[in-house]
Computed example of a mutant assay.
Amino acid sequence: MMDVAHILGFGHGGWGAALLLASGVTLSLSVFGFLLGAAFGALAAAGRLSSRSIRSWLANAYGVVFRGIPDLLTIYLLYYGGSIALTQIGKFLGSTGFIGLPAFATGVLAIGIISGAYQAEVYRGAYQAVDRGQFDACMALGLSSLQSLRLVIVPQLMRHALPGLGNVWQLVLKDSALISVIGLVELMRQGQIGAGSTREPFVFYIAAGALYFVIAAVTGLFFRYSEARAWRGMVHA
């Protein structure tokens, strides 16, 4: 068995730098996907709360579909479907050969779409948890709809949403490992490469697990801090 310190070290033949770089890819992929999902989720939540039936139906269909089908299937459909469409456009413009979508961008989009379906329910529930008197107060003050949302409703909505968003973030972090199937070398894929190259799968998968745990723990502290700050000076159940 090879020396573990040498395998995971930063010297010649060590895999430490590669694993840390892959961890950065995983974190970047997760952050951008989560933020994109926040935009999708906010739009879907607004649709679910809309009085117009078509908007509500479309938003509900989006949530049901992407919460219902396997995440891996969503990734495959986006990557291969998008690549086929891009290839056809390329042929129309005179290009030849297969044109694949960038793996990182596809991963961000896939995670954004998937997490958005979950974030929509978080935002919808948080909106409904805001005291109705706050809406009446906005009307009494003569605030516009945009002013009411920006100054009063959204800050209170986020207090209720943060715990749920923390849970969605953990799902996003784990889903990031699935993006390796379309060729992105993130943490899980780098662990597989190292395990195959050195024939030390136990060492690399334990190391990858430890790095995932560190990322989850540190970002979890961020969400807990944000939640505590959002509720400072407030009494809540």
Rank of each mutant, 00 (worst) to 15 (best):
G14V: 06
A177G: 11
M1Y: 10
G13H: 06
S51G: 14
E186T: 13
L73C: 07
K174H: 10
L149R: 14
I89V: 12
L211E: 15
A22K: 03
L101P: 06
Y212D: 05
V152E: 04
L21P: 08
G142V: 12
S56D: 06
I54A: 01
L19G: 02
P163M: 01
A45F: 04
G194P: 15
A207I: 05
G196L: 15
S148H: 03
G196W: 15
A39M: 14
V65A: 13
G47I: 01
F34G: 08
R232M: 05
I153W: 00
V25W: 14
N167L: 09
L184A: 07
R224E: 05
S53Q: 11
F223D: 01
A110D: 09
L58H: 08
G97W: 03
L77Y: 06
H160Q: 03
Y118G: 14
L49Y: 11
A126Q: 01
M2A: 13
T219M: 07
V108C: 01
V172P: 02
C138I: 08
Q192N: 13
Y62S: 03
G220S: 03
L20T: 13
G16I: 14
L151I: 06
T87R: 13
A46R: 07
G194T: 09
T198V: 11
Y212I: 10
M188A: 11
P201M: 15
I7S: 10
G90I: 00
Q156G: 01
D131R: 10
L78T: 07
G166W: 01
D3R: 07
P70G: 04
N167W: 04
V168L: 00
M234V: 12
L141S: 13
N60D: 12
I153L: 03
G233Y: 10
V64A: 12
T198H: 02
A216C: 14
L146P: 04
Y212T: 05
Q170K: 12
E186H: 14
L29F: 07
S144N: 11
F40V: 10
H12N: 11
L141V: 09
Q156T: 03
G24M: 13
L151A: 02
D3C: 13
D175C: 13
R189G: 14
A210V: 10
W231A: 06
I193M: 12
M234W: 04
S53A: 12
